[in-house]
Design a protein around this nucleic acid. Structure first.
Length: 1010
RNA sequence: GCCGGAGUGGCGGAACUGGCAGACGCGCUGGAUUCAAAAUCCAGUUCUCGCAAGAGAGUGUGGGUUCGAUUCCCUCCUCCGGCACCA
């Protein structure tokens, strides 16, 4: 019978081996053609917005890291659809940015051409993975129809000010009204009505969330642009690793600091990992303390400092100002630097012994400090400085203390000035030692002893030699000091943040132009909404100018315009008009462009209404996806965006929220960071240059790379003992074995070998291309493997053997459920209770076996549904896959596979491996099949069918496993103890001792204590 | 230096809320099939001792809490990540 069927099936050609290539493309086209994954809009269903961090479409194409997060979100999207949600699952391109521009310059191709090409490649690659995106909602940040709204949002930010009392952003017009109505004092003191339009615009400019300032910036000569603090790592550019210097420059800034506290507070209600929240908190860097006013001796200038340790004020023996501090700006009229060295100036205070007076010394030091790169400053923390020649008065002690200038004080933090308490601050201590300044102890680590604890003592203790607060522990002492300072008008409590305002302009071509013009009077005006988008001029020469001037400055015809100002004169909108238009005045467009982060600050909102040309997003669409529950329901992406993108977009979102343009005050309610995928594990064997093997135990763990004789990069390090250069070589894994906690050469166990996985990189040659994996194993195997590798959030090494493992699982599944090249074993019972396989009726013996198999599989099936469901909910995709593998293995052992079990398994598999699931579903269901398995509801499980009727309970004696007894599920303690005591093995172990105590955990274990 | 996170077989990893450590997959070993190989199927696989039945040890280290600890607490070690002259 079986043989006959086998022959028949073969002849029909219906059954064959698993061939991903033939099925994946087919289903991708069908899904796309039927728009199966268009975002649902059934008002009766709850919404679920599942978002990927959209990629930068690089020229390299997709990396295996991309499908990791994308598969995870796709699983959730498909699962949530099956659970009856309206699911929004979109994809787009973050396509402005440096790499495309760099490459464009190199190849002399316009970046828009490259960008289009790269996007096409990415789209094709993503489609080949079968992700269930709603492709009709694709966005592209470089499309004028998109950046029109980036510019539009920028103008809203520009026209917003932050009301410190209400702690929210408000339209600038409301500020104008407050000035005009006398509700708020006008800076400068003159009444609003008396001010000219220019004066009004100047005042408003200081309040706007987007403002221009001349400030020292991170200038990267190699990239030809300035960078945000967040884009500078170890004094080098994040992109490319080029050196960065500090230079003063006119720049656009966004006032993110106004939102510091709200960005901090908002974290509490977000479902993000603790580590990520911590990174954001650290970056915002809130610290509480006091600002204290010092006066300059013999002058009327006031120096305000910020300190977190006001309790140490009696120990302040000198002050330090940042080299850029306005009070030491020799060009400013009110600087504090005297013309001659005061009496008692030590030689070492003069910076250069040749300096004849403080002004010369200071100028020399300022010049030196300004030329020092950020990197040099961070690497060399030895203290340097110069005496300003001026003194200040310690406000509580009244004594004269010298004022120094040093670059260990940063202009960008606090007030750019500190009170130095060398006894209780490591940095001040080092400085005081070097410059022979007095060190005065004001904290003791013991309550009664006045001088306990070695200096510098930074830890909390008890105040000493501080008349106002003697004996008080540090925390209350600081509080008391604040009270007294406030009462005497010497200072006040203050909260300070490390976060700086966001440097928002770049001297590059490939970015959004600012929708602004500079007017003749030096003020700026936003472009009228109707004039957006302001498109990039198509510049034949978009190379950097070689100076600090941006490339757009070369587009003279574009830059120089005639404008008419509409609206209120204090806050006008500029309309570019043809020359000669009555009332037109000349103006210049802003020639900087926005940084890459601009487009990604709000793209998740554009997906909600991607084709709208009247609004960035229509209100109802926004509410449908972002209001209840608030924000994006699941956002997955790399941890490299922990502080940049995630802080910036939260900031923009809060501004939009304050302006009533969005309904949630946080954009991303739940966020998960997928872990990096490393290259395949490698063994590295070190050899001396003479070719002698060296144990890696004897090698300096700090490795470097150099170009080897064959022009390929090679790993080099040094022999710890001799210092000789050693070269790292790839080592065959089969020649290595584990000894203790290290790997050694099998042939010579004295030689230790280094074992680790490295980040994938072109130079190392360990990059895995998803296209190759798909060509060989199919995209279902790739998706499955990326999820099976380990927990989503963890860093994990790639393994080609592992891909084969999941590929074999898919083959076994295919053979099990379709029969493959053999006879099908899937049997179903029709309405009349007759078991059939294909069109054949099973004989009595076979039917009996099928019924038996059905009973055998019922409980494992329900357990599998439960486990897979729960695992998807908690994003434990690796264990969900294990469970399905186990269930498939269970099916393998059956003679007949009940169709219900088969259908359940493919339904559960569909979010993970949609193509094979779809194909098997259609083969099983035949003519009764729906358009797609994805339209079937998610299987339900019966909790009662998830446990076995008989359970094997482990019996411990004194916590040690000593036997097992089988009891009915739910048996009470007495029964279990009884059968345990009756068990031969337990009896033997008890050796006649009577249990003193017993602990029974229902259905889990029994512990007998003797 | 400061702040996080993690250490489980040869490898990736599993273990719900303190309850049978090592699921699942890879690799390896043996067997079946094959002229042979690939593929596939079956069995075994934490370590030590033992022919075996079995015994003992075991989740980075040392200690603690508990009837019971991979899980909770403390000490130390290693690795990974973030920040770093932030007053």
């Amino acid at each position: 019978m079986r043989i006959v069927r086998l022959i028949k099936n073969r002849r029909n050609g219906a059954m064959a081996g698993y061939d991903p290539r033939s099925i994946e493309k087919k289903w991708q086209e069908i899904w796309l053609g039927k728009k199966l994954f268009a975002a649902g809009d059934d008002p009766l269903r709850p919404k679920y917005y599942v978002l990927d961090m959209f990629p930068y479409p690089s020229g390299e194409g997709l990396h295996v890291g991309h499908p990791e997060g994308y598969t995870a979100t796709d699983i959730v999207a498909r699962y949530k659809r099956a659970r009856g949600f309206n699911v929004l699952h979109p994809m787009g391109w973050d396509a402005f940015g440096l790499p495309a521009e760099q490459y464009a310059i190199k190849t002399n191709t316009h970046p828009s051409v490259l960008t289009r090409k790269n996007i096409d490649r990415f789209r094709t690659q993503l489609k080949s993975l079968g992700f269930s995106y709603d492709w009709d909602r694709e966005v592209n940040t470089t499309d004028p129809a998109y950046y029109r709204w980036t510019q539009w949002i920028f103008t809203r930010i520009y026209e917003t000010w932050f009301d410190d009392n209400l702690r929210k952003g408000r339209p600038i017009q409301e500020l104008v009204d407050e000035f005009a109505g006398g509700k708020r004092p006008v800076p400068g003191g003159r009444p609003w009505a008396e001010l000219s339009a220019t004066e009004r615009r100047r005042i408003l400019a200081d309040f706007r969330l987007a403002y221009e300032v001349e400030a020292p910036v991170n200038w990267c000569p190699a990239l030809g642009t300035v960078l945000a603090n967040e884009e500078v790592i170890d004094g080098k550019s994040e992109v490319g690793g080029f050196p960065v210097e500090r230079r003063p420059m006119r720049q656009w800034m966004l006032r993110i600091t106004a939102y510091a506290q709200r960005l901090l507070d908002g974290l509490d209600k977000l479902d993000w990992s603790d580590s990520l929240k911590l990174m954001q908190r650290n970056w915002i860097g809130r610290s509480e303390g006091a600002e204290v006013h010092f006066t300059v001796a013999g002058g009327n200038q006031r120096i305000t400092v910020f300190t977190t340790r006001p309790d140490t004020l009696f120990g302040a023996t000198y002050m330090v100002l940042a080299p850029e501090h306005p009070l030491v700006n020799l060009k400013a009229p009110d600087h504090i630097v005297p013309a001659a060295w005061p009496e008692g100036t030590l030689p070492e205070w003069r910076y250069k012994l040749s300096a004849e007076n403080p002004r010369a010394a200071l100028a020399a030091y300022q010049q030196w400090a300004a030329a020092r790169s950020e990197r040099q400053r961070q690497e060399d923390t030895a203290k340097t400085g110069v005496f300003s020649g001026a003194f200040a008065l310690n406000p509580v002690r009244g004594e004269k203390i010298p004022i120094f200038i040093s670059d260990y004080v940063l202009m960008g933090y606090g007030t750019g000035a500190i009170m130095a308490v060398p006894a209780h601050d490591r940095r001040d201590f080092d400085f005081a030692r070097l410059f022979h300044l007095p060190i005065r102890r004001v904290v003791s680590s013991a309550a009664q002893k006045p001088d306990a604890g070695e200096l510098p003592l930074e830890a909390p203790g008890y105040a000493v030699d501080s008349p106002w607060i003697n004996g008080l522990p540090t925390a209350p002492a600081a509080g008391r000091m604040c009270d007294l300072l406030e009462a005497r008008g010497l200072g006040r409590r203050r909260v300070n943040y490390k976060l700086r305002d966001w440097l928002f302009s770049r001297q590059r071509y490939w970015g959004e132009p600012f929708p602004l013009v500079h007017l003749e009077d030096g003020t700026t005006a936003a472009l009228a909404d109707a004039q957006l988008p302001l498109e990039l001029p198509s510049l034949a020469d978009f190379k950097p100018t070689g100076t600090m001037e941006p490339p757009l400055a070369k587009a003279l015809a574009w830059r120089d315009v005639q404008v008419v100002l509409d609206g209120k004169p204090a806050n006008p909108r500029a309309r570019v008009v043809p020359a000669g238009t009555p009332g037109a005045a000349p103006a210049r467009r802003e020639v900087n462009t926005m940084p890459q982060w601009a487009g990604s600050c709000w793209y998740y909102l554009r997906y909600l209404d991607p084709h709208n040309d009247r609004a960035f997003c229509e209100k109802n669409n926004e509410r449908r996806w972002m209001a209840d529950p608030p924000g994006v329901d699941l956002y997955i992406g790399g941890v490299e965006h922990a502080v940049l993108h995630l802080l910036y977009s939260r900031f923009w979102h809060k501004v939009l929220f304050d302006l009533g343009l969005v309904s949630s005050d946080e954009p991303f309610r739940k966020l998960v960071n997928q872990g990096l995928i490393l290259g395949e594990a490698e063994y590295t064997l070190f050899e001396s240059e003479a070719g002698e093997r060296v144990s890696c135990a004897d090698v300096d763990p700090e490795w470097t790379t150099r170009t080897g004789p064959d022009d390929k990069p090679q790993i080099v390090s040094r022999h710890t003992a001799t210092g000789a250069v050693v070269v790292g070589r790839w080592c065959d894994p089969t020649k290595v074995e584990k000894r203790g906690d290290a790997f050694v050469l099998t042939s010579n166990p004295a030689i230790r070998v280094d074992a680790r996985s490295f980040k994938m990189s072109k130079s190392r040659g360990n990059v895995v291309n998803p296209d190759d994996v798909i060509a060989r194993y199919g995209s279902d195997a790739l998706r499955l493997f990326e999820m099976f590798l380990g927990p989503l959030e963890q860093v994990k090494p790639w393994s080609t053997a592992g891909v084969e493992g999941v590929y074999r699982f898919l083959q076994r599944l295919w053979r099990n459920l379709t029969g493959g090249e053999a006879a099908a074993r899937v049997a179903r019972r029709d309405a009349g209770g007759t078991w059939r396989c294909d069109s054949n009726v099973l004989n009595e013996a076979e039917a009996q076996a099928a019924t038996h198999d059905f009973q055998t599989i019922l409980r494992p099936m329900h357990r599998t549904i439960r486990k897979v469901t729960q695992d998807i909910e908690r994003h434990a995709f690796n264990t969900a896959i294990s469970t399905m593998m186990e269930f498939n293995n269970t099916l393998t052992r059956l003679t007949w596979i009940p169709e219900e079990a088969a259908q359940t398994l493919v339904r559960l598999l569909e979010p993970f491996a949609p193509h094979i699931a779809e194909e098997i579903y259609h083969r099983l269901a035949g003519a009764a099949a729906q358009v797609s398995i994805s339209l079937l509801p998610w299987p339900e499980y019966d909790e009662a069918l998830c446990t076995d009727e008989q359970l094997e309970i482990p019996v411990q004696i004194n916590g040690k496993l000593s036997g097992r007894v089988t009891v009915a599920a739910g048996a009470d303690e007495r029964e279990v103890v009884q059968s345990a005591l009756a068990d031969a093995q337990v009896k033997a172990r008890l050796a006649g001792r009577a249990p003193r105590k017993q602990i029974y955990v229902k259905d889990r274990m029994l512990n007998l204590v003797v």
